[in-house]
Design a protein around this nucleic acid. Structure first.
Lengths: 207, 207
DNA sequence: TTTACTTTCAAACAAGCGTTTGATATGTTG
DNA sequence: CAACATATCAAACGCTTGTTTGAAAGTAAA
């Protein structure tokens, strides 16, 4: 039946995509090898090129910003004051970034991309990062108003995001500085709380 | 004369080290190739292995934390209140991180290391990053006192450093978000000013 | 000059990478 | 059943990587 071959073919595709997300988020684009992805997907080395064309294209297709977008629309429609929504954002965002149990590895792939750009960087910036920055820019504006100029507000967004991604991208270093560090749910929420406190204090001082 | 051969040999070594710092800081450890380093040093491909043993060892020897240490001792002996010293630190640190004209590329090699660890990570953490964190921990303590516990003070250090390294490590993204972005001296000092303002407001709110 | 040692060099090596190929198996269609 | 299209596979290709090699060049001491 047509559905059956299509189905087994799609199954291979799906397994490749899942394995790709796993390996890319763990090893980065360069560090990930096609062979390792295929090994985890129980597929032949040639499978990636057959189904996706190239490693670059596989990476591009493996990217998915749904969860990040959902986080934003959810946050924007939350019936809360901007301060609480910033708190909520940091909380959800840090869970996405740090929680190993989190099914979505998209954010981690993106965070890695920040440090070590791939051919897909333009797509990522346009589709995910730029909207995220705009979203945060509006949130900051709601808090500080136009007391701070556009440049200053953008730098506030950078300050916020810089704190967030630091915990992910510098994990190998932080792990060595404080060997007992583990990103369990309690720790993540404590970190998110600190970042929100720190940033809100800085933002509210501008009012 | 013994001095002459020693001298020409040392010259090759020196040229290799200089080229290595250039390429490593630009491309990272993985991205840098032995061939490119030797090309810039006007040396044979075998030179790296002859003089240093391996690419790893060359990287290790190319690291040099003098400027970072100097920044700290200079800062610690400055006759200023802790708030002003934090301001001074951020200013000097950001110049080290972002100023292309800055002769020392050490800091940029280190910042890259944060995101993409190499075999030399342990050395870097022990000799440079850990002391830097201790230094900043003391500075934060001078500002907030023991009102904030040790964990909280450490997170404040992370918040500060996270903001700083963000501008370096995320440059490819920021460049795409605001194409007119250039790290000239004026821009760097404006950024440093923002980070210091932002962080001091957050820290002083804890008092 | 001869001898011994150090430094440089072109060339090759071994391993890993993404990708391609041609055969084989599998399922569909006339 | 025969002819065809699709999917999988082992194997190999072409390339780049860090590293090694053995000869040549250069220098210092006898």
């Amino acid at each position: 039946m047509a559905e059956q071959i299509a189905s087994t073919c799609e199954q291979t595709r799906a397994r490749l995509l899942e394995a790709a997300r796993e390996v890319f988020s763990q090893c980065g684009f360069q560090g990930a090898t096609v062979r390792e992805i295929c090994r985890r997907a129980d597929a032949n080395v040639a499978a990636v090129n057959y189904h996706f064309g190239s490693k670059d294209d596989l990476f591009s297709e493996a990217l998915n910003f749904n969860q990040l977008k959902a986080l934003q629309t959810e946050n924007a429609t939350a019936d809360k004051c901007p301060e609480k929504r910033l708190r909520l954002f940091v909380h959800d965002f840090m869970l996405m970034l740090l929680d190993e149990k989190n099914a979505s590895r998209q954010c981690r792939m993106m965070a890695r991309e920040l440090a070590d750009p791939t051919p897909a960087l333009d797509k990522i910036v346009t589709e995910a990062i730029a909207p995220l920055h705009e979203f945060l820019g509006r949130l900051v504006f709601e808090i500080v108003g136009d007391r701070a100029g556009e440049t200053e507000r953008r730098r506030c967004v950078y300050s916020l995001l810089g704190q967030c991604v630091f915990y992910r991208n510098s994990y190998p270093v932080l792990q060595r500085l404080t060997p007992e560090l583990r990103y369990d749910r309690k720790e993540i929420e404590a970190i998110a709380g600190h970042i929100a406190d720190f940033s809100l204090a800085a933002l509210l001082a501008k009012k």
